[in-house]
């Protein structure tokens, strides 16, 4: 599982945004704002990663229960899939 090429994640003004670069900007007209967890997950997904590994890294980074972490990951991936951002 991996986020498509052609996006730039950037910390700016105390938050995180993702913008399309190059040819991607022609198809994807807009931008994404991410909260802290979203930014963490996005960075992991810039390289190919399994859902199990993603869960392991989220649990290692944040003090959350496995149930909540799974819920967060599923919701995040569902959003990325809806927006066609994930392969």
């Amino acid at each position: 599982m991996k986020i498509k090429e052609g996006f730039l994640l950037r910390e700016i003004a105390g938050g995180t945004v993702v913008v399309p670069v190059g040819k991607t900007s022609v198809d994807f007209n807009g931008m994404i704002t991410l909260n802290e967890t979203g930014a963490f997950l996005w960075k992991q997904l810039e390289n190919d990663i399994s859902e199990e590994e993603l869960l392991r890294r989220l649990l290692a980074e944040y003090n959350v229960t496995e149930d909540l972490a799974k819920k967060d990951i599923n919701a995040f991936i569902a959003k990325l899939k809806d927006a066609g951002l994930i392969d």
């Binding site: 003004a13 105390g14 704002t33």
Partner: peptide
């Protein structure tokens, strides 16, 4: 606030 303005600037 600056971050609320970022989408507007972009």
């Amino acid at each position: 606030q600056p971050f609320s303005a970022i989408p507007l600037f972009i």
